[in-house]
Nucleic acid binder design. Structure first.
Lengths: 372, 372
DNA sequence: CTGAAAGCGCTTACAG
DNA sequence: CTGAAAGCGCTTACAG
């Protein structure tokens, strides 16, 4: 509110406190009132270091006074790049999507970026051309993709061709560290395996997701590795291939539970399939966890709606979204100071609820904590 | 591909088939090649009727040939209005959100509009100023809101002040017909009531949503009206106020089921609360539907994960999103030809599953179909 | 460290 | 029915 601005505030604008325009203020208003060129205002907006600090302060004061906020459309036009972040996904699980979006929005909060959502079907014949049109038309600032979309190498080859920055979140290292966030599904599955083994289960089953999701193999691999670390092996007879759907979980569950030597514990590639196993157990007259231990993956809200509440490997969905967005907005932040791998890694954790117990007649042994 | 364009396609561009620019074509390229002014091209883009049809055809041909698509940012800047639709919501139910978004995207498909998502908290002290900044900064084309966001009169007063078009989807007539989509929650709840009455239930309970959602009273009112039509009354002793959450459903369920004369049927304001009632019934050692009939509302995926599968009133979420977006994009479409009310109305329907049965010892009577 | 000119790709008056 | 000029609100070279 320095009085120097008296002159700048002519043209019907009152000086000091009440400086207010009827229309939204533009960079020209700021420049005029601060008595500098719009180019200098632009420098302040874009945090150029080449502005005298007095000048910067004066401009910032006027910006605040006016409540000026640069028009993202105009900036985008001049920059040849918009301030829109695209979230491309094909995951059918609503709570997964909404949580990830929430994380992205956390990172975008108070920025001038907006989140544009774009569900898409990788199998559609127009998939790639649709994505090309989307990115080109909107001149997207960048794109964030979750599994299984993030696993589509053709898509990201296209993004590189279009010069569109992206971040892929996946359970497998698929790209340069700067372009992805790695979620260690492997670890989470291994933890589930160790837990099941510690409870004393030996006839242990696994229901995998579909082969079109890389996480299917990763979760299966992690589970097998976890069992192995406890001296068990994952018997192929106890492995079923599901499709990450409730129905497939039900089918695989029925198949497993009708075996002569049925498993006493089932690890499911996700919670939806675990819900299917619950249904199959119910139909077979088996009680969870007394007769059957079930562990899920995702830790979706469903876990607490089922009875008994389902133990599940929690994916840090919100963090995944937030970190992906942060990486997109600050690509330089990834240049680590030292030589360590700048790859961002996130870790799932097993959430214990009431769907697990030792197999009938077995007292749980704590192999890892109590050496025999 | 008329050969007249030979001249237009100079500057290193091959004529005919392979006309291709290295950069994205602009309105100037189209104008030059079609040998008209860019203003005329603009007229074609904007479907102005004042273009000779030959001229229009020629221009459209060039547009197609070049694969030209106008830059939404540049148009937005000139129009002083973007091509972004904001989806503002506070509903915590992910499947609700995702389904509505899918509907909105259906309507936006192949348009140059994009969907920008914006969860927000009505109770936040900065709520209105945040919304103002969002709308002003992005110069939103329009906004779509679902309950309870859609019920916030202050928000839409602001939208009118900002001259931002909007569509409110709600269970109550809150605005002019052109600015809203009405969903008859009342009807769906009444249908549930009639069904329960026909099964022979007389001790019938209702768990409502929170008073901050208008749908809470509407669903309760519809249910009471439906019972009344069957000669029953909704006894206030059997009414509980929940919060549309699983936990609140559990609490209210426990409260109802611990009554000396406990209800034999419970209608829940949404599926989440119905899941809570399932849990309460389980804890009380009651079996659904033998000992207790439960009906939900929303018809979320949860209905099929619960055991037994939950009967529920289906909300046409995807249609709600689609119609709201269509109304926003074609405000003129609502001017009905005749004098009939142009208000768009959608109707929920009861989906029968296995959570309902006659009360113990009662043979269901078909009051509506079979007059005694 | 700062500014005048030109331009991003479109549309709005205004002419004819 | 069609076009030349000016402008939307910003930034990029280019000077100084």
């Amino acid at each position: 509110m320095s009085s120097k601005e008296g002159r700048g505030a002519v043209e019907g604008l009152g000086a000091g406190e009440g400086v207010e325009l009827r229309r939204k203020p533009t960079i020209n208003d700021v420049a005029r009132i601060a008595q500098v060129s719009k180019k200098t205002v632009s420098r302040v907006i874009n945090r150029s270091p080449f502005v005298k600090s007095e000048t910067r302060d004066k401009i910032n004061e006027v910006i605040e006074q006016l409540g000026f906020s640069p028009d993202p459309q105009a900036r985008g036009l001049a920059f040849r790049r918009s301030f829109l972040i695209g979230h491309i996904y094909d995951n059918p699980n609503p709570s997964y999507i909404v949580n990830v979006q929430q994380g992205i929005l956390d990172a975008l909060y108070d920025s001038s970026f907006e989140l544009v959502v774009r569900p898409a079907d990788r199998r559609s014949p127009t998939f790639l051309s649709d994505m090309r049109a989307f990115v080109e038309r909107q001149k997207l600032f960048g794109v964030i993709a979750m599994p299984s979309m993030s696993e589509d190498d053709d898509l990201f080859a296209l993004m590189r061709e279009l010069d569109c920055p992206y971040v892929r979140v996946a359970a497998v290292k698929l790209d340069e560290p700067g372009r992805m966030i790695l979620v260690q599904d492997h670890e989470g599955a291994a933890e589930a395996a160790r837990y099941v083994a510690e409870l004393g289960h030996e006839r242990v089953a696994f229901i995998s997701g579909p082969p079109t999701f890389r996480s299917s193999e990763v979760r299966g691999g992690g589970f097998a590795a976890g069992l192995k670390s406890q001296g068990l092996t994952l018997d192929p007879r106890y492995v079923r291939q599901g499709a990450y759907t409730f129905e497939s979980g039900l089918e695989c569950g029925e198949s497993l539970l009708s075996m002569k030597e049925r498993p006493t514990a089932i690890f499911c590639g996700n919670d939806e399939m675990a819900a299917g196993v619950y249904r199959a157990a119910h139909a077979a007259g088996l009680e969870i966890p007394t007769d059957l231990t079930v562990i899920g993956f995702d830790d979706s809200p469903l876990t607490q709606r089922l009875w008994p509440p389902l133990s599940s490997v929690r994916l840090p969905l919100r963090d995944m979204g937030r970190m992906a967005a942060e990486r997109l907005l600050n690509p330089e932040a990834q240049e680590s100071e030292d030589d360590s791998d700048p790859l961002t890694v996130l870790h799932p954790t097993l959430i214990h609820r009431e769907s697990s117990a030792p197999p009938v007649g077995v007292t749980p042994k704590k192999r890892t904590t109590q050496p025999a």
